[in-house]
Structures are given as structure tokens and as C-alpha cells.
Design a protein around this nucleic acid. Structure first.
Length: 425
RNA sequence: GGAGAGAUGGCUGAGUUGGUCGAAGGCGCUCGCCUGGAAAGCGAGUAGACGGGGCAAAACCUCGUCUCGUGGGUUCGAAUCCCACUCUCUCCGCCA
């Protein structure tokens, strides 16, 4: 959410952001409502001031019963009007909130203008895509042949877009979760969190999933619970409606969670394999930082995520998202894309964003710059560190051998009792 | 699921015969005095949001409104009375 005062005073900037991000938001209507609301608010407050004053008078003096009765009579009418005005104000607030919650964040000046992913900018690349003396297999074929992925049975148990990991597959998933958590807690200074996988609508609104992306989330029927689409939601809301001390910042959290996405609107895309699932695992990094630090914290956050891929020896590139591909809540975003041999292309495996004060304002997360000073909104950031399922896919495909076995990256071998490859049983 | 208790400012904790209560006291914190420095002691200050005005202005000053879990109701007036909901705690039952 944007600061209403900022919107009021900088309508042009907001308009540009709406256009750049192609968001449907009626800014003019919002500004008009804002003007009318303030006019009504002033009239209402005047009446309340009158009522408060007269009520105090009634409470103080006691002897002149006739005068008191007359004042009560008068205030009864005033209270009726106040009630009407308050109802009007509530209607303004509701309609304004409706629009304000759909205003996108303002892009950082460094964000390249553009329409879609074709306009994203490659910042750097790491590693060299492997060359094969044979035709590389897609990970779903490799996984089924190794007996570690079973999509037919996943379909039977749950449906399409679900995965079933068996044997070494399940162990690989678990090894990657532990490896990433160990790395980020041990080397990068993050505090580990294990959050609820269901959250209420307040949390979903706080991070920006609601109201705009309601159809992307799974909702529990008959209750105010949503399955989390990412650990970003529970972890960012950890400090919802809190005022933190400047000395506490920056706060860095890492959380493993399952993630649940309806993938509405993705029919027919990535229907095979682990790339696009209704449920997948992810290790997520979340930061709470002072505004002046968020820019460099995004760089270090991205570097922390990159470190995972470097240690796993997976070739990747870093893309800077253009304004049109930036998303709703982010001011600046890097995507990490890992090389997938079967597709002959890079695929997103991590997304690292600086939300500036956009989420903090929605979720009421503030900090006090110095003791005695006014509390202000801090900045939040998050990034995948990284998506587990897509990492499994990348490992299977990049490390596959002609005989169908898969070499294990060295950093994972301790999690496999020292074994160095996956082979068919 | 059954029975009971409770939700107040950064924390703790008064206030429940409705009327200068946005709220005593304590702790913490900030500033000042004291000290070679620190502790102790003493003095002052210390909730948030919104709107108007001042200011080039975030800050800051000033006036006003709202907020004592949330939402409604009664009343001239509610932290205080009534209703609903949410959450927390205790006991019982059940369960991993």
C-alpha cells in the first residue's frame, strides 16, 4: 500500500507506476473520494467537538434542570447527525481502501522500463551449461527411471500438479532443505523460523496476496484460513503491527515451508515434471531493514541465494526485472534462473525483491530510528533461497550421466551418508 | 467438545455505584543535575492514527477528532452498562 499523503501529493508518480505495471487502478476516483472524505470529516469533527463540550457542561452543572433538559434534547439531535456522518465516512473509507489496496508499489529508479519478460535485463551469469555426449533426459524421465519420482501415483492420490517423491527422491528433497537451512543459518546469519502453513486473511493482505490475487491461493472452506503460497507470508507477518527498535535491525529470517498455489491461469503450462506444482517446498529468506539499507540488503540477499546455486554447482543467471515484470508489491526484483538442459534454457528458481515500505505499511510494521523519535515504516525484502522442487529438477538434469545415474553435488553427500551418486535400484 | 477467568500505553499494573481518564503507580527508555568516569540519587519528559493551521519541508509546533481486544447497542456523555465475535489462561474430556 502507498501512503495516502504521498498519493495525494504525487499523483503523477503513482499514475506512471500504474501505467508501467499495467495495473487497473482508478487513481482519479481515489483522489476525488479523498477530497470529499476530508470535507465530511471536518464537518463531523466539528459536531463531535460540540457534543463533547456540551456533555462536559451537563456533567458539571446540576441545578438548572430545565436548561440541562434542553441541552440533552439538542445533543440528541446532534448525535443522530453524527451517526449519519460517520456512516458516510465509513462508506468513503471502504471504497478508498478498495482502490488503495490495488495501487502497485513505485518502481525503483534503477528498474528498466519494459512490458514483459523480454525486456528484463541480464545482470550476470555464473557457471557454464554442461555439454552432453548424449541426448539429455528431462528430469521427470530421469526421476521415474531412478524410481525416485512417481507422478502417476501422485495423480491418483491428489491430482495433477502434485509430486510423489520416493526413496532417494524423498531423501534428496530433505537433504536440500537441510543444506539450505544450514547454509543460511550457519554462514549467512539468518534466524530459522518454522511458521504455520495456514494463515488468516489479515496476513495475506499484509504481504499483498489479497485482495488482488485471491484466485491464486487455496482457501479453507468455511474458515478464515489460507494455505500459504510462500513462507514470505507468515514470516513477514511475524512483526505485523509492531514497532521495532532500530538496534534490532536488520532482522534476517530463514524459513522452510511447503507452498501451495492454485496456478489459476496456467492451464497447459509446464504440465510435466516438478516445475509448476500445487504444492512445493521452498526455503525462504526474509529481511526487515531500515529504509536507507534496503538497497544494499537486496544485493546481499540475492548473493545469499546465489551462493546456494554456486555450492550446488548449478549454472544460473541473474535477471533484473523490468517495470512490467516487476509484480505488484516489489520496487525492485532480481530473478535467479537456473539452467535446465532438457529445455535448453534458464528457468526461474529464485525471486529476490525489495518491497520498500509497501508491505510494511499494509502490515503496520514500523521501527523507531532513535529513542524518542517518531516510529516509521521499515523496509521488507524477501527471496527464495531457493525453491526445492526446481532445484531437484536442475540437479537431475545437469548432473545426469549416460547410464541414467545422477552424480550428487559434493555439498549434498554428507546428507547421503557419503554416497556420491543416485542410481536405479 | 464442556466449565470458568481474563484482554488497558514499550512492559507491568490500577481504574467496573458511567462525567476534565488517553488513562494513577512501578519498570524501562530519553534529556539534565551530580561524578575524574560509572553506579546510586535527584529533576523533567515519554502511546498511536487521522484531519485543520504554522513551516519550503519528512521532522517539529499547535488546535481538534478517534483509539483502553474487534464490531455493534444504550446514553447528552462509556475503559467503565448490554449484545455478538476474536484471542489468551485454568480445569475436565478427547487427541499426535
Amino acid at each position: 500500500m502507498l501512503d495516502l499523503k504521498f498519493v495525494r501529493e504525487n499523483p503523477q508518480i503513482v499514475k506512471e507506476a500504474i501505467a508501467l505495471k499495467s495495473e487497473p487502478a482508478d487513481l482519479d476516483r481515489l483522489l476525488e473520494l479523498d477530497r470529499e472524505r476530508r470535507r465530511l470529516l471536518q464537518k463531523t469533527e466539528e459536531l463531535k467537538q460540540l457534543r463533547n463540550r456540551v456533555s462536559r457542561e451537563i456533567g458539571r452543572a446540576g441545578t438548572d434542570q430545565a436548561a440541562v433538559q434542553q441541552k440533552k434534547e439538542e445533543m440528541r439531535r446532534v448525535s443522530t447527525r453524527i451517526k449519519e456522518f460517520d456512516d458516510g465516512l465509513r462508506r468513503f473509507d471502504e471504497e478508498m481502501e478498495e482502490i488503495a489496496l490495488r495501487l502497485p508499489n513505485i518502481p525503483d529508479p534503477a528498474v528498466p522500463p519494459g512490458k514483459d519478460e523480454a525486456d528484463n535485463k541480464e545482470i550476470r551469469a555464473w557457471g557454464t551449461p554442461p555439454e552432453f555426449s548424449f541426448t539429455p533426459q528431462p528430469h521427470w524421465d530421469l526421476g521415474e527411471a531412478l524410481g525416485i519420482l512417481d507422478f502417476p501415483r501422485a495423480g491418483k492420490i491428489a491430482g495433477s500438479r502434485f509430486a510423489l517423491y520416493c526413496g532417494d527422491g524423498a531423501r534428496l528433497e530433505r537433504a536440500l532443505i537441510n543444506f539450505m537451512l544450514d547454509l543460511h543459518t550457519g554462514e549467512h546469519g539468518y534466524r530459522e523460523i518454522f511458521p504455520p502453513f495456514l494463515v488468516n486473511s489479515g496476513s495475506m493482505t499484509g504481504t499483498g496476496q489479497l485482495p488482488k490475487f485471491a484466485e491464486d491461493a487455496f482457501k479453507i472452506e468455511g474458515a478464515d484460513y489460507y494455505l500459504i503460497p510462500t513462507a514470505e507470508v507468515p514470516v513477514t507477518n511475524l512483526h505485523r503491527d509492531e514497532i521495532l527498535d532500530a538496534a534490532q535491525l536488520p532482522l534476517r529470517y530463514v524459513a522452510y515451508s511447503a507452498c501451495f498455489r492454485s496456478e489459476a491461469g496456467a492451464h497447459g503450462r509446464d504440465t510435466r515434471g516438478l516445475i509448476r506444482q500445487h504444492q512445493f517446498n521452498k526455503v525462504e529468506l526474509v529481511k526487515f531493514v531500515a529504509p536507507e539499507e534496503s538497497s544494499q540488503e537486496l544485493e546481499s540477499l540475492t548473493a545469499d541465494a546465489e551462493k546456494v546455486l554456486q555450492l550446488l554447482g548449478l549454472p544460473y543467471r541473474v535477471m533484473l526485472m523490468c517495470s512490467g515484470d516487476l509484480g505488484f508489491a516489489a520496487a525492485k526484483k532480481y530473478d535467479l534462473e537456473v539452467w535446465l538442459p532438457s529445455a535448453g534454457t534458464y528457468r526461474e528458481i529464485s525471486s529476490c525483491s525489495n518491497f520498500t515500505d509497501f508491505q510494511a505499511r499494509r502490515a503496520g510494521i514500523r521501527y523507531r530510528p532513535a529513542p524518542g523519535q517518531k516510529a516509521q515504516f521499515l523496509h521488507t525484502l524477501n527471496g527464495s533461497g531457493v525453491a526445492i522442487g526446481r532445484t531437484v529438477a536442475a540437479i537431475l538434469e545437469n548432473y545426469q550421466q549416460e547410464d541414467g545415474s545422477v552424480i550428487l553435488p559434493e555439498v549434498l553427500r554428507p546428507y547421503f551418508g557419503g554416497r556420491d551418486r543416485l542410481t536405479a535400484p
